[in-house]
């Protein structure tokens, strides 16, 4: 379920604001939704939806690489902090990072 260009645009606007911006944007969209989402039966599996989301993120990044919009005002370092240098780091964006793995996929008791 790859979203159309509209979703790419929405994503491209939110990604540069980091986890906080995404959290705010998604919460607002969720809270303000006036339409009921498709019933679960009509949706692809969660695994497919997650894969599609990663495709969207790659597309948004590619769009930035191609035309500089709408990430034009964003420090590339801020983007890098999301994904780390050459590998996935769950930190980077919070208080200078919480190390490899971070809490969420690491451990919840601290």
């Amino acid at each position: 379920m790859t979203h159309d260009r509209r979703s790419l645009r929405a994503l491209a606007q939110l990604l540069p604001s980091g986890a906080l911006g995404l959290s705010v944007g998604l919460a607002a969209a969720d809270a303000a939704a006036t339409t009921t989402p498709e019933p679960d039966g009509g949706k692809p599996s969660v695994a497919v939806r997650l894969e599609s989301l990663r495709t969207d993120v790659s597309g948004a990044i590619e769009q930035y690489r191609r035309d500089g919009e709408p990430f034009v005002a964003v420090d590339p370092e801020q983007l890098l902090a999301w994904w780390g240098n050459g590998g996935w780091r769950n930190g980077g964006w919070r208080n200078g990072g919480w190390g490899n793995g971070g809490w969420h996929n690491g451990w919840h008791n601290w």
Partner: peptide, 23 residues
């Protein structure tokens, strides 16, 4: 809000970027 905000980077990552589980 940890439960959401730390899940976000794990979901919104580009293709080909692995997610580690240090446990």
């Amino acid at each position: 809000v940890r439960e959401i905000d730390l899940a976000l980077p794990r979901l919104f990552r580009p293709e080909g970027v692995p997610a580690r589980n240090i446990q």
